[in-house]
């Protein structure tokens, strides 16, 4: 059997709206708690001042994007194995949410860099690979939307989503393998030329861990779940349009 039609997949999918709303409420409260801890609980860095607090969101956004893009790989592999369209929807949600979180990662990094590196942007290996990673996934969305045939679109998206993850892995490890990067490594030892690193006390570590948990385990799944719901709804409406046109 080939792919289940979108309408069948959507109609048979459980609704779970109540659970999603509860998750959204928990996510909102936890996000505000993380923001409050970043602003009021974590100590102020003596060298960088308050701008260092952006790191709690900067890192959370990167690892949230990492998880979202990893979901795209899972969705792609599962789609190629089963040809079930629900996995394609899962992969698509991962890319869209991952792009938003990657943008936050890039923007907060750039804003942090202005007072610390005295520039908004530099073609550092880490920054360049992060920018390329975002462009690779924006291209996924653009190319995908241009493919008319549904099965071709799903197959292409699955393969592209799996291959694109290499840009995420490279971005993650580049500060460990390129000695010329100036990007600091907050966890572990960074490159020799790293500028803007900081030592964390216990309040900073607690705040960082909480924010990472919120971004990775709450915000990313919540946004992806809403996106999956929207796609299921879009598929249902498309099927109704097709049925309407076939009628008359």
């Amino acid at each position: 059997m080939t792919a289940a039609s979108p309408s069948v997949a959507a109609a048979s999918a459980p609704n779970h709206l109540g659970r999603l709303k509860a998750l959204t409420a928990v996510t909102a409260v936890a996000f505000l708690l993380g923001l409050g801890m970043a602003l009021a609980y974590a100590g102020t860095d003596a060298i960088q001042g308050n701008v260092q607090r952006l790191f709690y969101f900067h890192m959370g956004a990167f690892f949230g994007a990492f998880v979202a893009f990893a979901c795209t790989v899972v969705g792609g592999v599962q789609y190629l194995r089963t040809r079930n369209v629900k996995w394609d929807t899962f992969a698509l949600a991962g890319v869209e949410v991952g792009v938003v979180l990657s943008f936050i990662n890039l923007a907060t990094g750039s804003i942090w860099a202005r007072p610390i590196w005295n520039t908004w942007w530099t073609w550092d290996p880490r920054l360049t690979s992060a920018a390329v990673m975002v462009l690779v996934y924006i291209a996924y969305l653009m190319v995908r939307s241009g493919i008319e045939n549904r099965d071709t679109r799903h197959r292409f998206a699955a393969v592209y989503g799996i291959l694109a993850f290499s840009s995420v892995v490279f971005t993650l490890v580049v500060i460990r393998i390129r000695p010329d990067t100036i990007h600091p490594a907050v966890i572990g030892t960074g490159a020799q030329d790293a500028q803007g690193g900081f030592a964390m006390n216990s309040s900073m570590t607690t705040t960082l861990l909480l924010n990472m948990a919120v971004w990775v385990f709450l915000l990313t799944p919540t946004l992806m779940w809403w996106r999956i719901r929207l796609q299921n709804y879009a598929d249902r409406v498309t099927q109704r349009k097709i049925a309407y046109m076939e009628q008359g």
């Binding site: 102020t44 607090r53 923007a107 907060t108 007072p115 946004l223």
Partner: peptide, 23 residues
């Protein structure tokens, strides 16, 4: 300690704004 509060506020505004725009 340098006063970099404006940059922190800008970063938080961009973060919240991006999430709000996506939602």
């Amino acid at each position: 300690t340098p006063n970099t509060t404006d940059f922190m506020l800008l970063g938080i505004a961009v973060t919240l704004g991006a999430i709000a725009l996506y939602v």
